[in-house]
Simulated scan of single mutants.
Amino acid sequence: MAIRTFGLTTIALPDLDEPGLYLSNVDSLDSTRGSVQDFAYGNADLRSLDLAETQLISGRITGIHAQRTELESVNLHGVEITSSDLGSARWAESKLTRVHVRDTKLMGAALDGLVLDDVLFEGCKFDYATFDKVRATGPVAFIGCVLTEATFTDCDLSDVVFSDCQLRLTEFGAGRYRDTDLRENDLSQIRGVAHLAKVRIDPGQQAHLAEALVNELDITVGDD
Rank of each mutant, 00 (worst) to 15 (best):
189 Q>K: 04
87 G>C: 11
68 R>Q: 08
129 A>G: 11
151 T>Y: 04
65 H>A: 12
112 D>A: 09
135 R>F: 06
46 L>C: 03
166 Q>D: 06
114 L>D: 07
126 F>L: 10
206 Q>N: 13
208 H>Y: 00
196 L>T: 01
161 V>Y: 09
81 I>R: 00
144 G>T: 04
1 M>I: 05
151 T>D: 00
197 A>R: 08
95 K>H: 14
28 S>A: 10
48 S>G: 03
100 H>Y: 05
130 T>D: 15
81 I>V: 15
36 V>K: 04
108 G>F: 10
48 S>T: 12
27 D>K: 09
132 D>L: 15
145 C>T: 10
141 A>F: 06
57 I>C: 02
1 M>V: 11
34 G>M: 06
220 T>V: 10
107 M>P: 00
178 R>Y: 11
47 R>M: 09
158 S>G: 14
100 H>N: 13
120 L>W: 11
169 L>S: 06
163 S>K: 10
35 S>G: 03
105 K>H: 12
210 A>C: 08
44 A>R: 11
44 A>E: 12
144 G>Y: 01
197 A>D: 15
197 A>T: 15
7 G>A: 08
120 L>V: 07
59 G>L: 04
111 L>C: 08
111 L>I: 08
63 G>T: 06
137 T>W: 02
4 R>M: 03
40 A>M: 06
86 L>F: 14
72 E>A: 13
117 D>T: 14
127 D>Q: 15
146 V>E: 12
199 V>I: 13
132 D>N: 08
66 A>I: 10
44 A>F: 10
134 V>E: 00
149 E>L: 07
110 A>K: 04
27 D>F: 06
114 L>W: 08
118 D>I: 03
176 R>P: 06
29 L>K: 01
53 E>F: 09
174 A>Y: 09
69 T>R: 09
3 I>F: 05
69 T>W: 00
188 S>Q: 14
125 K>S: 12
23 L>H: 02
64 I>G: 00
154 D>G: 04
222 G>F: 04
82 T>L: 08
107 M>N: 02
82 T>D: 14
187 L>F: 11
